[in-house]
Write a protein that binds this DNA or RNA. Structure first.
Lengths: 207, 207
DNA sequence: CATTCGACGTTTTTACTTTAACGGTCGAAG
DNA sequence: CTTCGACCGTTAAAGTAAAAACGTCGAATG
C-alpha cells in the first residue's frame, strides 16, 4: 500500500519506546500473534492512544522492521568504509548478519499464505531489504575487484548467489524450529556453516 | 516405525506399476492430498487389493521415495566411478540433483507440522537420504584431495556445508511456490544459481 | 495358494456455524 | 496535543456434525 520508508529514524522518543516494545513482542511471537492491545499495555497506553501514534498495525510493524534493517545497513556501511580487506569485510558481513538474524527471529515468521502473496506489505518490506543487502554485497565485491583482491571477471549474479546461499542456510535453520524457539545450538551450527561457506566463497572469487 | 529399507528394488512387476502410479500422484499433489483409493483406481484395483500389496500408505510412500532416492544414488555412484575430474563430478552432481528435484517436487511437500516432528517416518526418510548424499559428496571431495585437485587441509564439515548450501538454495525456490506448481522460470533460475555457486565452491576448495 | 473385493469399524479431514478477539474509528475530555 | 472508553465491522478461534480416508476381514474367484 504505502511506499516503504527509508527515512533516517524520524521518530519521537515516545514512538521509539513503542517501537521497541513492539519489536520485543513481534520478535518473540511473530506478527499475527501479537495484538495492538498487548503492545499498548506494555507501554501503559490505551489501545486508542497507540493508534494515535501508528495509524495501522502494519505501519507499526513496518516501523519496527525498517528500524532494524536500517540499523543493520548502517552498520554494514560503516564496515564497508573501514580499512580492512574486501575478504575480511565479507566475513564480517556474515557475522553481523547472524547477529541481526537473532534479533529478528520470529520477526520474519509470517503465515505461509502471507509469504506467498507477492502483493502483501510484508513481502515488499523484505524484498526491499534484500535489494539493499544485494547492493552492499555488490559494493564489497566490486571493491575487491578494483583493488585486485578478487577476479576481474566474475558472473554478474555472483552477489545474488552469495546472498541466496546465506539466505538459504538461514532458512534451513528456521524451518526446523519447534516450540517457537530457535535453539542456541542451531544458531551456533548456522554460524559455523556460514563461516566455512564464506571462506570457501572468498577463495572461490579471489585471484 | 519400520526400519528404512535400502533394498535393491525387490518389487514384483505389479508392485512397480503401483509405485509408479503412486509416484505420479504424490509428486503432483503431495502426500496428504492423495488417497489410497485414487491410486487403486489408477491401477485398476480395489482399495482393499492395494492394501494387499502395501500394508499402509506410509509403506507405499516409503517405497516410492526409496526408489527415487536409490535411483539417484546409483546414478551418482556411476558418476563417481567415471573418469572425469572431481571438480567436474561436483558440477554434474549438482545438475543431476536438479533433475531429481523436478521428479520429486511435491513429493517432498508435507505439512509443516509433520516436517518438524522429528519422529515422523517422513523426516526419517529424508534424513537418511541426506546422510547418503553427504557420503557421496564426501567421497568426491576426498578423491579430489587424493589426486591433488583439492586442498589437503579442508574443514571436516566442508561436504556438509556444500550439501546445506545446495539444499538451502532449493528450499528458497520451493518456499515461493503458489498454486502447487514450481514454475519453469524458477527452476531455470535455481539451475543458474547452483551452477555459479558450485563453480565458486570448487575454486574455493581447489589448490 | 495367490489375488480380488464389497462391506464395515475407526480415526482423521473437512465444511460449517457460532463465538470471541482483534483492528480500527470517533467523540469527549484533560 | 494527547488520552481513552465505547463502539463497529471483520476476522480468527472454538466447537461440531458430516464426509472422507485409512485400514481390516471374511468371502469369492481362478
Amino acid at each position: 500500500m504505502d511506499s516503504i520508508k527509508t527515512n533516517t529514524c524520524q521518530f519521537s522518543e515516545k514512538e521509539k519506546i513503542i517501537i521497541e516494545a513492539a519489536r520485543k513482542r513481534f520478535a518473540h511471537f511473530g506478527y499475527s500473534k501479537v495484538s495492538m492491545e498487548e503492545i499498548a499495555v506494555d507501554v501503559d497506553l490505551g489501545k486508542a492512544s497507540l493508534y494515535y501514534y501508528f495509524p495501522t498495525k502494519e505501519n507499526l510493524y513496518q516501523a519496527v522492521l525498517s528500524k532494524e534493517q536500517n540499523g543493520f545497513i548502517k552498520e554494514i556501511e560503516g564496515l564497508i568504509a573501514s580499512k580492512i580487506s574486501a575478504g575480511e569485510k565479507l566475513v564480517e558481513f556474515v557475522n553481523m548478519r547472524i547477529i541481526y538474524f537473532k534479533r529478528f527471529l520470529n520477526l520474519g515468521t509470517l503465515s505461509l499464505h502471507a509469504f506467498m502473496d507477492s502483493k502483501s506489505f510484508y513481502t515488499k518490506l523484505f524484498l526491499n531489504f534484500e535489494d539493499q543487502e544485494l547492493i552492499l554485497i555488490d559494493r564489497i565485491i566490486s571493491e575487491g575487484q578494483s583493488n585486485g583482491e578478487f577476479e576481474k571477471k566474475l558472473d554478474s549474479k555472483t552477489a545474488t548467489v552469495l546472498l541466496h546461499v546465506l539466505h538459504g542456510l538461514r532458512i534451513r535453520v528456521s524451518r526446523g524450529i519447534k516450540e517457537l524457539e530457535v535453539s542456541d545450538e542451531a544458531i551456533r551450527q548456522l554460524q559455523t556453516e556460514m563461516n566455512i561457506a564464506i571462506r570457501i566463497f572468498i577463495k572461490g572469487i579471489s585471484k
